[in-house]
Nucleic acid binder design. Structure first.
Length: 453
DNA sequence: AACCTCACG
DNA sequence: ACGTACGTGAGGTTC
């Protein structure tokens, strides 16, 4: 698609996972990892980012992978029984309503049934390759046209949970350790984030009720407590820091609900008169800003007209003028240097920033805005991880860091260490760097991941 | 292997 | 006139 994708392919050729099984101080391995990461780091920041963060992190990730995560396979098996019965029922029901046998897991066949047989939309949209679009957000808008649509979405939802998580995870439990051992990939992403694979533990469901059941199956070691600590709004705080926008910084410094504060400003009303609809719009706008907003994208997500979306964005930039200036500066940086940088000097090359093709150029511009924000958040949590692991070892704690999910760290903790560990984690996460706004960490505990989160 | 869809931050 | 919010990984189908 663009340069970002291409860079990734090159880096993937080297198998860092193998390297991680050895001690990080091995000179040859140091050299190899350095070769891979160096190109992404500014020379004057090499000392700090490479030697103080990425290299020590190798060992931390290896420890987390070795620690592994315990799951409740019996609970998942029980879930599987219930959901498999449900899905079989839905299968029969859907074929009945449609009046034809077809494979509901095939987007192609679903499209043909909905748009050719049942004709629920005479100007149905198609993908590049000429297939009907049947994605969730699109079908949701067509739900009222035919009762089968909701059933298909329900089928899809359950099928996803079963095949990707409920039935798949128990098969990956290592028989020797009784745990799931993911791989944390240190050199995959274009922004500096980690990724997780085999299995991916960074996309375990949480948003709906059925998904939450899966999180319940992630449990601490015997007689221990699950501890989960996550940064509150870290990317928006970084936007406030990088832009230096006075209004946005003030909102964070005063500890306001940032989405409500945003709504109050852009709709010109007191914060206590912000209703849930206004807050929702402001929240979507805040996310949009981080991603390099467009009126079209915002309109689509809020289901409002494009002109309304434009007014919302204009209001946003009037309220946070330095945010707009920051976004323009990011694009100008990319044009001038061919790259953008995070707070700690992690670089991402952007080749397409001057492309004559406006679509390609658009991707590059949005990447130029987002990469320093997403990448800085990654820098920050990596610092915290290295320091936390150091503390765990120095203090001879038996607590174990077991997962990282971008802005969140998870631990299994003996009861006797609970207070020590919580304090240590929150302190290291909140003070990893010093920004113009405070970093806030929420820390929860429980008998499983869901309770702790 | 490409495509579509969908799970997460 | 066009296509359009950032970053990932995985499963199922299709070719």
């Amino acid at each position: 698609m663009n340069t970002q994708t291409k860079n990734k392919q090159d880096i993937r050729k080297v198998d860092i996972q193998l390297l991680k099984n050895y001690a990080a101080e091995d000179a040859d391995i140091t050299f190899q990892l350095k070769q891979i990461l160096k190109s992404q780091i500014a020379d004057n920041q090499l000392e700090k980012l490479f030697y103080e963060i990425e290299m020590p992190l190798v060992g931390v990730l290896a420890t987390m992978e070795r620690n592994g995560v315990r799951i409740d396979s019996a609970a998942l098996a029980e879930s599987s029984k219930v959901l498999t019965a449900q899905i079989n029922e839905l299968d029969v029901e859907i074929q009945q309503i449609a009046g034809e046998k077809f494979n509901i897991s095939s987007p192609k066949q679903v499209g043909e049934i909905l748009f050719e047989k049942l004709k629920i939309d005479d100007k149905a949209k198609k993908t590049k390759t000429g297939q009907y679009i049947t994605s969730e957000d699109y079908l949701e808008k067509l739900q009222y046209r035919h009762p089968v649509v909701a059933k298909i979405l329900e089928y899809r939802g359950i099928k996803k949970l079963l095949s990707t998580y409920i039935d798949a995870l128990p098969l990956l439990v290592n028989p020797r350790t009784g745990k799931i051992h993911t791989s944390y990939n240190q050199t995959v992403t274009s922004t500096g984030r980690l990724s997780s694979s085999n299995p991916n533990l960074q996309n375990i469901p949480v948003r709906d009720a059925q998904g939450k059941e899966i999180r319940k199956a992630f449990i601490p070691d015997d007689n221990e407590i699950f501890v989960s600590a996550d940064y509150s709004q870290i990317e928006l705080r970084i936007m406030a820091h990088l832009s230096g926008d006075q209004n946005m910084c003030k909102a964070f410094i005063n500890g306001h609900d940032i989405h409500a504060a945003t709504a109050s400003k852009i709709f010109h009303i007191p914060i206590n008169e912000v209703n849930s609809e206004m807050r929702r719009k402001a929240k979507t706008a805040n996310f949009g800003i981080i991603y390099g907003i467009s009126a079209f994208g915002l309109a689509d997500r809020l289901n409002i007209s494009r002109s309304e979306a434009k007014e919302l964005i204009d209001g946003y930039f009037q309220t946070f003028p330095q945010v707009k200036i920051y976004m323009e500066k990011s694009i100008a940086n990319a044009q001038k240097n061919g790259y953008v940088e995070t707070i700690l000097g992690r670089r991402s090359r952007i080749a397409d920033i001057n492309s004559a093709n406006s679509v390609v150029r658009g991707y590059a511009e949005r990447f130029a805005i987002n990469a320093p924000i997403q990448g800085s958040a990654a820098d920050i949590i990596k610092i915290a991880m290295v320091r936390i692991q150091q503390q765990i070892e120095n203090q001879n704690l038996n607590s174990k860091m077991i997962m990282q999910v971008h802005d969140e760290l998870n631990f299994t903790v003996p009861k006797s260490e609970l207070e020590t560990l919580k304090k240590l984690v929150v302190e290291q996460m909140q003070n990893a760097v010093n920004l113009h706004v405070p970093l806030i960490v929420d820390c929860g505990i429980g008998q499983n991941w869901l309770e702790a989160h």
